[in-house]
Design a protein around this nucleic acid. Structure first.
Lengths: 115, 115
DNA sequence: TCTCTATATATAGAAAGTCTACATAACTAG
DNA sequence: CTAGTTATGTAGACTTTCTATATATAGAGA
């Protein structure tokens, strides 16, 4: 059997990427806004450190999965907005599929969570 | 809201612990056997490197979550068998609960996986 | 007997990735 | 005009896994 990319050791990284790609997928976002939306949508459960978020965004952009463009806003303020590329959409779909596999296998081993 | 311990950054570690505690929970196991069972039960999806597994077992033992005891087997062969302590059972239950919370929030953000 | 493979435990150092803290700057409300 | 929020970014510490190596027993096959 082919070993999944979403094994436990790489889990953190792929989960972060999936969260980011999913939120960007709902419309153009800049980094700071993205972190806030993640926190709001999860009732504070998830939260990116900025020192974690920005390097991941840079990496995703370098890999061609998202496209960033600076936008002048106000007289001096600039924000960098990101959107998914076609490759990014494919990548997100593959991560979702991997996630399903992970969840199924993981759940089978850890058992049910009845109280 | 109280921040969960099973956030994305700590996910890998807690997943590994949960897998280990779950398999040990089904009966006394030694390390090598544990790795094999994990691989078999997940159809090869999961697999521990030995360099990862043994340090985790030592840490869990040091923290009083599992108890290890050497057992003479054959004339010269020794194996170290592990079993869950009462504290380990509680810890596993808390990890399971955290996992549920994680999954619910994560799924809400990444959306459905329809093809 | 000898050799190769599997079983079994363990550790050292490399590699990957996140976290904390800091740096910079503009906007906003009082 | 000052304090807090918005906004992006980097450096270095820290945590954890991964790869590779070391050691030793058991069993199968030539």
């Amino acid at each position: 059997m082919q070993r999944a990319i979403l094994t436990v050791p790489t889990l953190t990284r792929y989960c972060n990427e999936l969260l980011i790609l999913s939120i960007i997928g709902t419309g153009k976002k800049h980094g700071y806004d993205l972190a806030r939306e993640l926190e709001e949508q999860s009732d504070g459960f998830f939260g990116f450190n900025h020192g974690t978020l920005y390097p991941i965004l840079h990496k995703l952009e370098k890999d061609g999965l998202i496209r960033g463009s600076w936008k002048q806003e106000g007289p001096r303020r600039k924000r960098k907005y990101y959107s998914l590329t076609a490759e990014g959409k494919k990548y997100r779909a593959s991560l979702l599929q991997q996630w399903e596999g992970f969840f199924t296998h993981f759940r089978a081993i850890i058992g049910e969570t009845a109280p």
